[in-house]
């Protein structure tokens, strides 16, 4: 009975996870390594990779700051509207990414609420890089906060209180007590946040406008290449994203194995 269950689970995993992954790499390498590498010399592909890195480089640090601040506030302080804040943090998880993107179009688009203002300032958000960054920040906001809140709540405030009685300032307490106590959970959250920031499709697709070489991120570029029947290039770029996923998974496993007890037990993605 047990073996049947295990076989069932392994079979399921192989069918739905391993097989597609192998397909990505085999399709990418179907015409040989040269064709695979040639895909990356394409200027539009390079631009897409560059844009993805740029967006992640902006969105992840910002969400690091927002996430830590939100988690700190929620876990260590009592204030009115706290449960509302917790609900808001989870909002991006419950809203379809397409809707998240659409919100920005309705806000900043040419016919949007703040559209005329953007026109006056000669500042483009929709169908430009700022929009992509905004949408990515929105979609990836919960990852770090959600990772930190349960752990910080579990740790309580006694150590912070001890630091205060020993003469440390609030900021010093945060830097020397609160932050080190969550450092592995924080790294874990950053990894997940980064993976999602680079891989996000829906929200970005709505605000990007798909301008080749300008507003195409890697996931969008994969779609365009695929629709143009350029399968080798499409799967080559896709394999890069898959590789990122594998690296994230590996790093995540190492973290869990090595520092499992200093990650939150309450909640797992």
């Amino acid at each position: 009975m047990r073996w049947m269950l295990v076989a069932l689970a392994v079979g399921f995993l192989a069918l739905f996870l391993v097989l597609p992954l192998l397909a990505v790499f085999s399709e990418a390498l179907r015409r040989g390594v040269d064709a695979f590498l040639a895909a990356f010399t394409e200027p539009d592909t390079q631009a897409a990779i560059g844009l993805t890195l740029l967006v992640a480089a902006i969105a992840v640090p910002l969400n690091l700051v927002f996430g830590v601040a939100a988690a700190w506030a929620v876990a260590k302080f009592e204030f009115a509207g706290k449960s509302l804040l917790v609900t808001l943090i989870d909002l991006p998880f419950s809203v379809s990414p397409v809707v998240s993107g659409l919100v920005y179009v309705l806000l900043f688009g040419a016919k949007g609420l703040l559209g005329p203002l953007m026109d006056d300032w000669q500042f483009k958000i929709i169908f430009a890089v700022p929009g992509i960054v905004l949408a990515t920040i929105f979609v990836t906001f919960p990852f770090i906060a959600r990772e930190l809140i349960p752990l910080m709540q579990e740790q309580g405030t006694a150590e912070e209180e001890a630091a205060l009685t020993l003469g440390a300032s609030g900021w010093r307490t945060f830097l020397t007590v609160t932050l080190p106590n969550v450092r592995w959970a924080l790294l874990y959250g950053v990894l997940l946040c980064n993976a999602r920031a680079m891989g996000e499709f829906g929200a970005v697709s709505v605000v990007s406008g798909h301008i080749r070489g300008l507003t195409n991120t890697m996931p969008l570029h994969v779609e365009i290449l695929y629709n143009e029947y350029n399968f080798v290039a499409a799967f080559a770029v896709a394999s890069l994203l898959a590789g990122l996923a594998l690296v994230t998974l590996g790093a995540k496993s190492i973290l869990e194995w090595r520092y499992g007890d200093s990650l939150a037990r309450v909640h797992r993605h």
Partner: peptide, 19 residues
């Protein structure tokens, strides 16, 4: 403020800095 009172506080569960 707490930090200026110069009190020594020993907490029930010690609250040692775990790291």
């Amino acid at each position: 403020a707490v930090r200026d009172r110069r009190v020594g506080f020993v907490f029930q569960h010690y609250a040692l800095f775990r790291h």
